[in-house]
Design a protein around this nucleic acid. Structure first.
Lengths: 245, 245
DNA sequence: ATACTAAGTGTAGTTAGAACACTATAGAGG
DNA sequence: CCTCTATAGTGTTCTAACTACACTTAGTAT
């Protein structure tokens, strides 16, 4: 198909090889919640450049592959999560000429949200020390401009948290009010008033969550009501869009 | 410099030519206000593909050029506006494999805001029918996926309007309350209450605009107070960021 | 002078968020 | 069995911001 394109283009007097082309990659900021921390998945580099340092998972966009497809593929390769139920959103494109010492590399950054219960299962499956979750508040030295990328991702996550129901992508299907409030607290890095928080979630004009009838979490103390995200309402998801454009 | 990079990379056993590389371009959605309309700048294509159809201005990212620099350069080439005082923000990266029939082209879309007084001066300078402002509510048939790109840009503009002082990038330095209110009305495509609007702008906790002392616009009717944007306050400009990453 | 047009202002009702303290219900341990 | 303790769950008041709506003011045009 690419060959066909080139032929057609040549016939029309267009020479695609005229300009030297940059490499294009995708990099993934994969967030999860664990041990009461907001965490991001990093891989340790084996080779030059930045050998031994930690980096975001990522890889080349294949020549016949959509960018979001490349991001999905990398997500699946890196975590084994194939399902499209993992939240994935394009973040920003970074393309300073010197960001990669090898050659000109433009990277399209994505961020992904993996539910706490899913990431717990992952942890045991991943091989050795090459891949690890790190607290976003305690990151190692990072390769390339990946520190910057994580900053931008964290900003975006915090912003979206307030205006979109994105938080539910980090929790199992059913959850207690305390879990949800803690999640917000961890991401926003501040404490939230119990009553005001639950009022906002349950009693705003278009409620965001609803109680699951007869579902209670039994534990060491008073059992808690389980809630789930209300899909119906169809909120404004913000202009930055979802997976593809 | 690039040559140096390749050498260094080769020495470390990295072959950058291993993968076929896509072309990378920037496309610009340049907004302005004119004749009471929100307008976008389009250029008419002369060649295959989509010959005769209208498209967003844009071009290749040079191999040693930052992406935002390429966007600035195209903006300047297309409009003659060199100053970095024109608002420019990265929008989204579009990379479906088939979006360009010539070859694989990934495009990083930007959107720009040109003040009404500046764009009026431009109009006379541009050559013939090859470049034109179009109302966003009355667009011609567009080449490539540029219709989609404009949609995304319009969404983003509307969203940012409510939470950031972006509107001032479409107005001259001083303006009347009515001009500002009309601007919001045009972009949001609805009418706004006079009193409530000015209350929001002037009397919110952190005022967005201030009266210019002794400056009044004299005209056919009662003269109007002139206002200017308050720079001091430093608002949250939203997570999506400005020009560079 | 008078009419016309746009600028500018005041008020009451509603809604969302912040601050703050008390009651309820389970298991654990003596 | 009773008490302790930890977490779940609820009510009220105050303030800031948004909505709806109508009247007054100050210029030019005739």
């Amino acid at each position: 198909m690419t060959k066909h394109k080139e032929l057609e283009a040549a016939a029309a007097g267009y020479d695609a090889g005229r300009y030297p082309r940059p490499s294009v990659t995708v990099d993934l900021v994969i967030f999860t919640i664990g041990e009461g921390e907001l965490r991001v998945l990093l891989v340790q580099r084996g080779q030059w450049p930045f050998a031994g340092m930690w980096a975001l998972p990522g890889g080349f966009v294949h020549i016949d592959e959509a960018i979001h497809a490349a991001a999905r593929r990398e997500l699946s390769e890196e975590t084994g999560l194939a399902g499209s139920d993992i939240y994935l959103e394009q973040l920003y494109t970074f393309g300073e000429p010197d960001r990669d010492p090898r050659t000109r590399v433009i990277t399209v950054a994505y961020f992904a949200l993996v539910p706490a219960d899913v990431s717990r299962r992952l942890q045991s499956g991943s091989d050795a020390a090459a891949v690890r979750w790190f607290s976003v508040y305690d990151l190692p030295e990072l390769a390339f401009d990946h520190g910057k990328i994580i900053e931008v991702a964290l900003d975006r996550l915090r912003n979206k948290l307030d205006w979109t129901p994105i938080a539910f992508r980090l929790l199992p299907e059913q959850f207690t009010m305390t879990q949800l409030r803690n999640l917000y607290g961890i991401i926003l890095d501040r404490t939230l008033d119990k009553q005001n928080f639950s009022k906002r979630m349950l009693h705003s004009r278009t409620p965001v969550i609803e109680a699951v009838p007869n579902a209670r979490l039994t534990g060491a103390h008073r059992p808690a009501q389980l809630y789930r995200f209300v899909e119906e309402g169809r909120y404004e998801w913000g202009a930055t869009g979802g997976d593809g454009p």
